[in-house]
Write a protein that binds this DNA or RNA. Structure first.
Lengths: 216, 216
DNA sequence: AGATGACACTTGCCACTGTCAAGACATAAG
DNA sequence: CTTATGTCTTGACAGTGGCAAGTGTCATCT
């Protein structure tokens, strides 16, 4: 459900190709993602984005209203990418709860690392419009995929499991790891403790999680 | 170790009271924390902070160099507040692992909610200077307190436990919950699922964590 | 006491930013 | 060809961060 990337705008059936630029909204999102991944959300600038897309400084406003509108659209795209990645894990290996959850976790951090510009923005309440329909539904869809996996965990390991709580904890764990990851590199150097790869930490988390929720 | 708040600057022995303003750096941090908690990190403005502190727009630069310097100092203060809060949990109740970890978690989210301006900044790599000594050591001190608690968990529940990994997972879980919290309110409304208080989620997390790391 | 110097701030400036209003321009419809 | 609509440009404005230079204030030395 995330086919708004710039590479797919040639499709002649669905995309009624706009007037001047091929697909300026997508190009602006791409430029924004690039810029934010380079300089962080604070280094973002509407004019710089316009410059990179080769349009005038006020062009973005026509499609997104203001800076918040553009970043909100980027966040929605981020949730869609996450959604797609989580969805793809379902049939990508063994169906048992442990394997599925593990694939979900890996998919989460991998998506976050692959789209740093998007993930630098999705949970920043002050940057995006919370009431935006597209962003909200995209996030709920992604959450739904995670919830489905947790339901498998419930069915297999503990019928008493509160799925919504468990799913929230799981999401929090993944997002927390992604948030802490850059800091960890720093700390590892400083304390000479062994470096933990993000994938290893995800594995440790899902193992702990599965043991933790298992009926005893 | 976090006595740099504006209320404690009357101490005549330690603080060699500066010339004009009582303690401008602290006042600027306070104004920044206030402003960021109101409008988010993106609404922060060096000039607005200066205005609120009643000084000229270039005054902050003299103490903090640039905007990043001020935010870095705020982050350091945030880590110190977290550090103090975690440290205070040690003797605040039963010494068993479960109680201690639970208190740690509660202290984490409570500190985050109490100092939203600080916590909106501490893990934003693009906003703060990663190489800053004060900020780095403050974060390591806070991490140390958490690690101590995890060592108790190890001693009590599982001698094989990898403390540094477990501590990281725990920190990630707490920070993830804090990050997701505002979003959860939103989602709860939308999906009509029951609302989870942050404290309940912390409790659920620590329970799961303890079960998950327990030797079997 | 007066001079010297270090520190704490202010003032003024520049390039840059987001947003708004108005205009230009290309395409589609009649 | 005319009209209309949606896309983008141009120009302007207030606000921003950072720099350079100036002003004021206090501490110390002779």
């Amino acid at each position: 459900m995330a086919e708004t990337t710039s590479s797919e705008t040639i499709d002649s059936t669905t995309s009624a190709k706009p007037y001047h630029h091929g697909d300026l909204p997508a190009a602006l999102r791409a430029a924004t993602a690039q810029l934010v991944s380079e300089k962080g959300a604070s280094g973002f600038s509407l004019r710089e984005v316009a410059r990179r897309a080769g349009v005038s400084h006020a062009a973005p406003a026509h499609h997104f209203g203001d800076a918040r509108g553009l970043l909100t659209s980027l966040a929605a795209e981020g949730f869609e990418q996450l959604s797609d990645a989580l969805d793809a894990t379902v049939d990508a290996g063994p169906r048992d709860a442990a394997s599925r959850l593990n694939r979900c976790g890996k998919a989460y951090v991998r998506t976050a690392l692959r789209y740093p510009g998007h993930f630098a923005v999705i949970f920043q309440r002050d940057l995006i419009d919370q009431s935006d329909e597209a962003c909200l539904t995209a996030s709920l869809t992604a959450y739904g995929h995670l919830q489905n996996t947790i339901e498998v965990v419930r069915d297999e390991l503990n019928p008493e499991l509160d799925v919504s709580t468990a799913a929230t904890l799981c999401w929090a764990g993944m997002q927390g790891l992604v948030t802490l990851a850059p800091k960890l590199d720093n700390v590892s150097e400083e304390t000479n403790t062994k470096y933990h790869s993000l994938d290893d930490l995800v594995e440790a988390f899902t193992d702990m999680f599965l043991n933790g929720v298992r009926a005893r």
